[in-house]
Amino acid sequence: MTEPDEGMTLIVKTIGRLVLNFILLFGIYIILYGHLTPGGGFPGGVIVATGFILLMLSFGRRIALKKFGDLAASLLDNLGALAFLIVAFLGFVGGYFFLNFIDRGTPFDLFSAGTLPLSNIAIGLKVSASLYGVFVALAIFGKAIVGGDRTGKGKAEGEPANSQEQKG
């Protein structure tokens, strides 16, 4: 670690580069097959978020924020929530809120179960973006995350303000 904020060692970077695609692929698989196998939007979204967090931990925050910035995370979070709400409101096409208005299809098909995969994708988008965003918020923005001890005399105040940014 010569430069601060440049991530971890070469070993971690190489392994992280190899593993990251599989983590993202697995997360997307969990999201898309949520209505067929155990999983769904929430765990799949958390897996995708963990992939990006691995990127940030191993390569440092500069590269990770270039790939997936905090504004983009916030935007995707809002978009996912909005998409879920839109899927819910589209139920009014057939009559009422959250109606499963698309054709059910045959069970065990990928394209089945009507609106459930759409909701899963929306929730997955929302959860992945928001949990990545909250990691960014806690690890990068935040000055003192666990400041102070039980007695309330702030312990973390003594350290320099920018010591957060030295480890990637």
């Binding site: 209505h35 819910a88 009507g114 609106t115 459930l116 909701s119």
Partner: peptide, 24 residues
């Protein structure tokens, strides 16, 4: 009724979708 073979998802996103909206 829902077409989902994962019964948990059919409850979470169809029968009890309103709860999921609240959680989201």
């Amino acid at each position: 009724r829902t077409g989902a073979t994962n019964i948990v998802m059919s409850v979470v996103l169809d029968y009890r979708a309103y709860d999921t909206l609240g959680e989201a």
